[in-house]
Design a protein around this nucleic acid. Structure first.
Lengths: 101, 101
DNA sequence: TGTATCCATCAATGAATGTTGATGGGATCT
DNA sequence: AGATCCCATCAACATTCATTGATGGATACA
């Protein structure tokens, strides 16, 4: 889980990719729409989409000439769970309890 | 918020740093303890601690010769909020509603 | 069949980053 | 004051990564 999140964090640790994710949080989009919206070169955008996809954060779906990308709900949940678990242990210790895992 | 989380994600996008964060989730520790636990060189560990601190994820506190590091609860909450908001919008669209921001 | 569109891949370049070893600064102890 | 311990910083190197432009593959349309 730590290792997976390491990949996921790396995928999210880029301004262009975060903007992509933010756009896709509004719903699935094809590459050409993202190119227009983000003002990025098509080649570069494709590289970032691949990075996000390989990290499990995006899914893709082909429809004719177009490829649609969308967020992978489960990946976001994994990240949220990890961060939450760190917080949880922190909170327990702040309350004077011990970690039992 | 996106920009801040970009820095935070970058800080977390490293296996050594994730292990540091995981250790510190059990409570604050001084650098020499972390050096023993993680088996990392002292110089390298100091570099990673600085990276995490500059991203706002860690706090440090000096006590005599020792410097103690601990997690910054607020930073983790920011990350959790961002990831959660992405999920939330995604969910709304899956339910057929529109994003109104 | 030929052309146009959408997208991925490749090669090349420059910048950023992780790692190591050596040095130095600050605090404690004798 | 001198020695020792904890930690940060510096220089140097190798590696990774973002970016760009060119090429190619797949699909749709005339």
């Amino acid at each position: 889980m730590l290792i997976y999140c390491c990949y996921a964090f790396h995928a999210l640790a880029d301004e262009t990719r975060l903007r992509i994710v933010h756009r896709l949080s509004e719903g699935e989009q094809c590459v050409c729409d993202l190119t227009d919206t983000l003002g990025t070169g098509q080649s570069l955008l494709s590289f970032h989409l691949k990075t996000l996809k390989e990290a499990g954060i995006l899914r893709d779906r082909r429809e004719g000439r177009w490829v649609y990308y969308s967020l992978n709900f489960e990946a976001l949940e994994e990240i949220e769970k990890l961060v939450g678990s760190l917080k949880a242990m922190n909170g327990r210790l702040q309350a004077g309890l011990k970690c039992c895992e």
